[in-house]
Simulated scan of single mutants.
Amino acid sequence: MGRPKNQRARRRQIADAARRIMLTHGSDGLRIRQIAGEAGLSAGSILYYFPDMDDLVIAVYEHAVERFSTRRREAAEGISDPSERLAAFIEQGLATGPDDEEVYLLHVAIGAFDRNPAIKILDRVLFDRQVAVYEAVLEAGEASGAFTLAGTSQEVARTLVALEDSLNSHIVTGNPAITRDVALGLVSAYARLATGVALRSVT
């Protein structure tokens, strides 16, 4: 049996191959033989590390969740102004366009696996993490006197995340009526109503 660190690297190699396939073909395109070819491994190796295809999809999804969450957190680091900080979170929470890989994986490519209980749990975890981030920003802004919230911080945060989720699905599927700029305007308009402040963009 290989060393643990080598096994982790091999699992990452396989998950990266599956990720590339999902980005071009969606979850319906995942086949053992195709993954093996993309990873440069045998079909037996794929099944050794991921006997259940759902486990492989979960590994891809988990990585996308971490990358998405990290980019949001890093975008607002060092920003002290509440309005600018909130704007940064909103901007990073929306897909950059149809080619935004992380958002595409989270909202579209998971496809046929979205009924998997583990995927549902991860989806709720992602939602709750984003809500918690928004709550912290909103509460800090309210405490400083910068924001006058139209509801509880949790209500506003949940609405912001729900708006992002819905709009992101339109952006990454190429709906011409909902571009990133349109989506940014819609979420920012709600944020203005919910906080009493016109956001100052950081981009």
Rank of each mutant, 00 (worst) to 15 (best):
G111P: 03
D16H: 05
I110R: 06
E84G: 07
A189P: 05
I121L: 14
L41Q: 00
L167K: 08
E135S: 10
D128H: 08
F50S: 00
I121R: 15
T24Y: 06
G174Y: 05
I119A: 02
Q34T: 14
Y134K: 08
S144Y: 05
G111E: 10
G145L: 07
G37C: 01
G97W: 05
L106E: 01
Q13I: 10
G145A: 09
V103I: 15
T152V: 10
E38K: 03
V57Q: 05
L149E: 09
A64T: 03
A39S: 07
D52V: 13
D52Y: 10
A64V: 04
P117Y: 12
Q34P: 00
M53A: 05
A162Y: 00
L105I: 09
A183N: 09
D16A: 12
A194P: 06
T148K: 13
Y48P: 00
L30W: 01
G93K: 13
A9W: 02
A140R: 08
E74Q: 13
S201F: 04
F147L: 10
I90M: 12
I21R: 03
A150N: 10
V161I: 14
T203C: 08
L138R: 05
A140L: 02
I119L: 10
G26V: 02
I46D: 00
E66N: 05
G93W: 11
S80W: 04
I119G: 03
R33P: 00
F127Q: 07
P176Y: 03
A17V: 05
T70M: 03
S144T: 08
G26D: 11
S69F: 11
D52I: 11
D165I: 13
H170W: 12
F68T: 07
M22E: 03
R115L: 06
R158S: 11
P82K: 04
V202A: 14
R180L: 11
L163C: 07
A88K: 11
G141L: 08
V125C: 01
V65H: 04
K120M: 13
E155S: 14
T96E: 14
A15S: 15
G40Q: 04
A194I: 15
V156M: 02
H107R: 07
F113K: 00
L163D: 06
K5A: 14
R124V: 08
S27R: 02
E38R: 08
G111S: 10
K5T: 14
N168K: 05
F147N: 04
P4A: 13
R180F: 12
R72D: 02
P117G: 15
G29F: 13
D181M: 07
R31A: 15
D81L: 08
L30A: 01
G2P: 08
L105H: 04
A112F: 01
V202G: 01
V187I: 15
S188Q: 08
G174R: 09
T24A: 13
G29P: 14
A157N: 06
L160D: 09
G93Y: 08
V108A: 09
R8Y: 04
A88Q: 07
